[in-house]
C-alpha cells in the first residue's frame, strides 16, 4: 500500500530532511506519524502526495512507483488518496456542497452521480444542514469535517491527515478522530500526522516516531506500553 525504501531527501540548500527512511503500511492499517516539528513528518506527507520526489530510495503507493510516475498520471494517482490538511484548504468562494462536489468533478464523473454522492457524504459527516454555507460561515471543526468529506467522497483507498486537529478545539479533535476511526473500520487505510500525544493515546493505532529525518521508533516492532497502552 505505502512503502518507503531507504528514502533520503536532501533539499537544494543541503538540508537533509529525510535520512534513509524505510517503512511500509499495509492495507487497512491506522497509523500515526509523530515527532517534533521539523522532524520530517510533513516531508513524508509531501512525498506521498508526490509534491516532492526522493533524492535517493524508492516510494511505492497504491502500486504507483512515485519516482517514475509520469507527470500526466499524477492527478489520477492523487485521486486515489484522500487528503486532510491542518488549514482545511477549502476553496473560499465555493459553498460546502461545491467544495465536496469539486473533488468528484475532477474525475469527470456524471452529474447524476455527484447529486447522489455528495448528500450521502454530507450526511455521514453530519453537515447536511450546512450544505449551502460558505467556508467562512462555519466553525473550524465544521470546516475540517467538510475537508474530511471532500477527502472521502472519491472512496480513496488511503486517507492522509496532516495535523487534522491542529486548528480546532480539543473536544472537536476527538470527534474528528472518531470519524477517522470509523472510516478505518470500513477498510480504508488512515495515516495521521500529529504531535498531540493525547490523541495517539486514546486511539489505538500503529505509531511511527520520526526524529531528525529518521525513524526513531515504530510501534509495529515494539512494546505498546511505551505509548501508554496496556
Amino acid at each position: 500500500m505505502i512503502k518507503f525504501s531507504h528514502v533520503t531527501k536532501i533539499y537544494k540548500n543541503n538540508t537533509r530532511a529525510l535520512n534513509d527512511v524505510t517503512f511500509s503500511i499495509d492495507h487497512g492499517e491506522f497509523v500515526f506519524i509523530v515527532g517534533s516539528s521539523g522532524a520530517g513528518k510533513s516531508t513524508i506527507i509531501k512525498h506521498i502526495l508526490r509534491e516532492e520526489t526522493a533524492t535517493n530510495g524508492s516510494i511505492f503507493v497504491n502500486s504507483y512507483n512515485l519516482n517514475k510516475i509520469r507527470r500526466r498520471h499524477i492527478p489520477k494517482y492523487r485521486r486515489s488518496l484522500g487528503v486532510v490538511f491542518q488549514d482545511f484548504r477549502l476553496i473560499p468562494d465555493m459553498n460546502v456542497y461545491d467544495n465536496i462536489a469539486f473533488a468528484l468533478r475532477v474525475t469527470n464523473i456524471k452529474n447524476s452521480d455527484i447529486k447522489r454522492r455528495v448528500p450521502y457524504i454530507l450526511n455521514l459527516v453530519g453537515l447536511t444542514s450546512k450544505a449551502r454555507c460558505f467556508p467562512s460561515q462555519i466553525s473550524g471543526g465544521e470546516q475540517q469535517r467538510v475537508a474530511l468529506a471532500r477527502a472521502l467522497v472519491n472512496n480513496p483507498s488511503i486517507i492522509i491527515a496532516d495535523e487534522p486537529t491542529g486548528n480546532i478545539d480539543p473536544e472537536l479533535s476527538f470527534e474528528i478522530m472518531d470519524l477517522l476511526k470509523e472510516i478505518n473500520k470500513c477498510g480504508t487505510t488512515v495515516l495521521v500526522v500529529t504531535h498531540e500525544h493525547d490523541l495517539v493515546k486514546k486511539i489505538k493505532g500503529r505509531v511511527i516516531n520520526i526524529e531528525n529525518g529518521q525513524i526513531f521508533s515504530d510501534s509495529k516492532d515494539q512494546d505498546w506500553s511505551k505509548y501508554g497502552y496496556e
Binding site: 492527478p75 489520477k76 492523487r78 485521486r79 487528503v83 477549502l90 476553496i91 473560499p92 475532477v106 472519491n154
Partner: peptide, 15 residues
C-alpha cells in the same frame, strides 16, 4: 492557494 487545492484533489492541469 485555490490552484494548489485543486492539484491535491487530483485535478488535471487542463481542468
Amino acid at each position: 492557494k485555490e490552484i494548489n487545492i485543486m492539484k491535491f484533489v487530483g485535478a488535471s492541469d487542463i481542468f
